[in-house]
Amino acid sequence: MTPLQACLLVSAFLFAIGFAGAVTRRHAILVLIGIELMLNAANLNFIAFWRFGPHPEALAGIMFVLFSMALAGAEAAVGLALVIAIYRHKKTSNLDEVKDLKG
């Protein structure tokens, strides 16, 4: 197994764990944490391909990760603000109990 494959496997595992958490846990904040883990798995892929790819001097991988980190920060801020707002209205942050729009 080459180092690139090892990094990709770690990233695949992180993605799967994040996905499992996002779809199986009830709490809204844990769903957000799962999404952050999935984003990080993608970032790890970018860095691994940048490091072992043919053109590291182009810095595309690094740039992608930096921008994705900024967006992850924005996403976390808005997501947690939503969780707090929902908690204020419904006094719960369990996703199973927040289903007013369910048909």
Binding site: H27, I29, A76, A77, L80, V83, I84, Y87, S93
Partner: peptide, 11 residues
Amino acid sequence: LIVFAILLTRS
């Protein structure tokens, strides 16, 4: 941020 949100939603 997440820790703050956890405490603010009493979870």
